[in-house]
């Protein structure tokens, strides 16, 4: 059973019912540093990665490189997050969840593309289940190149957003 949200005319139209909007892709300038102020909560989304970038991200948050000392943290829900940390090339099955996650982010927010796959498709750009790269859905604020990127580079890129 699947019920779609129906739109009806009613007395409280305008108060209760506004059309569902797409994500605003123009973000206010100067998001970094001004709004985030040393605290960057990120939600990680793997849209089709080989998990190489995930291993490097795990190392970036591990005691040696320790991104947490700069106020950077991974959170469970995009509703709690200041931004998304996206790895991997956009695959057919994860396209819908990516759209939903982008819609669930509250303004102001940032998007970080981590790894060559997220930046330009990398070595999987011609694979059979791939429908695009992150840039086809949203313009990332920060890109971290590398396949996989070094944890040092990941931490440096995230620090440039948070300001610490």
């Amino acid at each position: 059973m699947r019920f779609r949200l129906r739109r009806r005319d009613g007395a409280l139209r305008g108060l209760v019912r506004r059309p569902i909007s797409e994500r605003v892709t123009e973000r206010p300038a100067q998001v970094a540093g001004v709004y985030l102020r040393g605290s960057l909560q990120l939600r990680h989304v793997d849209v089709g990665s080989c998990n190489g970038c995930e291993v490097e991200i795990a190392s970036a948050f591990a005691p040696h490189y320790d991104a947490a000392q700069y106020g950077i943290r991974l959170v469970a829900s995009p509703r709690h997050a200041d931004g998304l940390l996206v790895t991997g090339v956009v695959t057919h099955n994860m396209e819908g969840p990516l759209r939903q996650t982008l819609a669930a982010l509250a303004e102001p927010s940032v998007v970080v593309a981590c790894g060559d796959c997220a930046v330009n498709g990398g070595i999987f750009s011609d694979a059979h289940a791939v429908v695009g790269t992150l840039s086809d859905y949203v313009t990332p604020d920060v890109t971290i190149v590398g396949c996989p990127p070094h944890p040092r580079d990941i931490v440096a890129a995230l620090r440039s957003l948070g300001g610490r």
Binding site: M1, R2, F3, L5, R18, P19, I20, S21, R23, V24, S77, P78, R79, G96, P97, L98, Q100, T101, A103, A104, E107
Partner: peptide, 20 residues
């Protein structure tokens, strides 16, 4: 100044999210 957007409830990215 901000205008609020209206989106579906967050369900961990589920595709088949029904009112049930």
């Amino acid at each position: 100044q901000r205008r609020a957007r209206r989106v579906a409830a967050w369900g961990c990215g589920r595709e088949e999210q029904t009112p049930r």
